[in-house]
Amino acid sequence: MVTKNETEATAGAHHDRMTAFKSKLLSSHPEKAVFGAIDVGTECYWWDYGLLSLYQKNNMLALDDTEEAASLRAYLRIPEDRAQSSELGNDVQVTNGSVVLASVVKEGEIDHTIASRVVTGKCDAHGASRTLVPVRPRSRGERRSLRTFPGVSLRPPPAFNPRPRRLSTPLLTPLNSTPTFARMERPSGCLLINVTARSIKARNCVIYNVVDDSEDGLVLPDGAVLTNVFTDGGKVFKSFEGVYKMNQSTDVKEAYKLGAEAHADLAKELKF
Score class of each variant (00 low, 15 high):
residue 104 V to A: 07
residue 123 C to Y: 01
residue 78 I to A: 10
residue 56 Q to F: 01
residue 90 N to S: 15
residue 122 K to T: 13
residue 124 D to Q: 05
residue 94 V to W: 00
residue 118 V to D: 12
residue 66 T to N: 07
residue 52 L to T: 15
residue 60 M to L: 06
residue 80 E to N: 13
residue 90 N to D: 08
residue 92 V to I: 04
residue 107 E to N: 02
residue 118 V to N: 09
residue 80 E to A: 12
residue 115 A to P: 05
residue 100 V to Q: 01
residue 121 G to A: 12
residue 57 K to L: 00
residue 121 G to R: 11
residue 76 L to R: 13
residue 78 I to K: 10
residue 48 D to P: 08
residue 59 N to D: 02
residue 70 A to C: 10
residue 65 D to N: 14
residue 122 K to A: 11
residue 72 L to I: 04
residue 91 D to K: 11
residue 50 G to C: 09
residue 73 R to K: 01
residue 113 T to V: 05
residue 115 A to D: 01
residue 124 D to S: 03
residue 91 D to M: 13
residue 48 D to F: 10
residue 109 E to F: 08
residue 105 V to T: 02
residue 105 V to G: 08
residue 65 D to H: 03
residue 53 S to Q: 08
residue 71 S to Q: 06
residue 73 R to N: 07
residue 77 R to I: 05
residue 76 L to I: 02
residue 82 R to C: 05
residue 119 V to I: 15
residue 65 D to W: 10
residue 111 D to Q: 04
residue 78 I to N: 07
residue 88 L to V: 04
residue 93 Q to D: 11
residue 97 G to K: 05
residue 50 G to T: 14
residue 96 N to C: 12
residue 91 D to R: 11
residue 80 E to P: 10
residue 109 E to D: 11
residue 78 I to V: 10
residue 75 Y to P: 10
residue 96 N to A: 15
residue 101 L to G: 04
residue 121 G to L: 06
residue 98 S to F: 05
residue 109 E to C: 09
residue 70 A to E: 03
residue 112 H to L: 05
residue 126 H to C: 01
residue 92 V to K: 00
residue 89 G to Q: 13
residue 82 R to D: 04
